[in-house]
Design a protein around this nucleic acid. Structure first.
Lengths: 227, 227
DNA sequence: ACCTGAACACCGTTCAAGT
DNA sequence: ACCTGAACACCGTTCAAGT
């Protein structure tokens, strides 16, 4: 068994086309681990991230990771927050267009998550890193400036958060399965007496995700700050 | 190694206080598997569901499950949809209060998911089972009756879906970690120049989840069908 | 301070076989 | 038609040890 294990490991570290890491390999660090985890997640999805594979990519032993990181769970948290760094100009033009500003903040948030589609499925499990908090802060300020009453601010923030997270998660999960969607709509047609209404409106085939996101956000903002 | 395995198995099937299943054990079935999976998920959470543990609870060998079920993924799908069965009276009183009706549908949806908190974290990965579709159908009909224009119906459905799913996922994940939330708010205070606004509004300590849900839903419905 | 390999206690699923 | 055990190819993490 030990021999078999050994064989498997050497297969892994001699991946075809991947020469052994040069001796000048930079030392392990929390940062390098997180960056590589994001790469791996982008390439292989959520189930593709394995402490063993991560270590391989970094050219180190598995257990070396645990010096810099508490657990796999920790890696997930760090990767999620890393991907949510806000890259907008810190000094916004302070326009009068508060509504455009809020829409921009939320569309950017959604876009950041959609460009790393695993991030949506990571959300339900985890905590609020500094980059998420920064975005919430930004949003809160914009809502204040827009004149939302103090008593309504938290509810407004959570409403928008809920909407964005729901939309992003939905979009990311449906994206994986265009065929599934077609098949589902097919099933609907087949059972059309049970699902007559959503069959007729072609709910599952509508694929203008960006448009639907904007439209729904519009409804919500109308409700939040009428006039 | 074979011996060790055997030992582990017999430990498992002789859990303390759990007599061996009587010979009259009902036969395995898809239904029984799903029901037991839900039990197990309720008791142990998402990481607690294991094909091996599931088989143990059912008094069968692991591989017997695979006759009735395609994969673990399949079990997740079935468990999620099982928990979303709609238990309302099929013949609603058809009230004039369309808004109350919609609120009821969505609060019931949220409540169903929150009473099986693992269901929220399952959402991002998966498909639309019959019970989910039924709820969408119900919602669609209510929106029609409320006078939402046909052209807006799909956007309205997805907006409400996004909101409910986002709210449920957020609530379920924050529920696990009251301490984390307090710690996070603590951190905020400590770095208060960066997060001044959300620190002041005590965003992370606000725990009237039900109230926030209803309030935000109100905003959204105001936007969806003003007047 | 930082990195390591061996070992432990698990996983999901394939396969060939049993009834 | 339905159920099974052995085996395969993995996991995350503990631990004692190395530099």
């Amino acid at each position: 068994m030990a021999a078999k294990r050994g064989g498997a490991r050497s297969n892994r570290s001699q991946r075809p086309g991947q020469p052994p890491r040069p001796a000048g390999e930079p030392p392990l660090s929390r940062q390098r681990i997180v960056a590589t985890a994001v790469e791996l997640l982008d390439a292989q999805g959520i189930d593709g991230l394995t402490m063993r594979r991560l270590a391989d990519r970094l050219g180190s032993g598995v257990m070396s990771l645990y010096w810099h990181v508490d657990s796999k769970e920790d890696v997930f948290d760090l990767a999620l927050d890393a991907v949510l760094e806000y890259r907008g100009s810190p000094q916004e033009p302070q326009s009068e267009d508060w509504r455009g500003e809020i829409v921009h903040i939320l569309e950017d948030w959604r876009a950041s998550m959609l460009s790393h589609s695993w991030s949506a499925s990571l959300l339900p499990r985890r905590a609020l890193g500094p980059n998420i908090l920064s975005r919430l802060e930004l949003l809160s300020k914009a809502l204040s400036r827009a004149g939302v009453a103090d008593a309504d601010i938290n509810a407004a923030i959570w409403s928008l958060w809920n909407y964005v997270m729901g939309a992003t998660i939905t979009r990311a999960s449906f994206d994986l399965s265009d065929d599934d969607r077609a098949a589902a709509q097919q099933r609907l047609t087949h059972l059309s007496e049970r699902y007559a209404t959503i069959e007729r409106s072609r709910l599952l085939l509508d694929d203008d995700w960006d448009g639907a996101f904007r439209k729904g956000l519009g409804f919500l903002l109308d409700g939040l700050a009428p006039g």
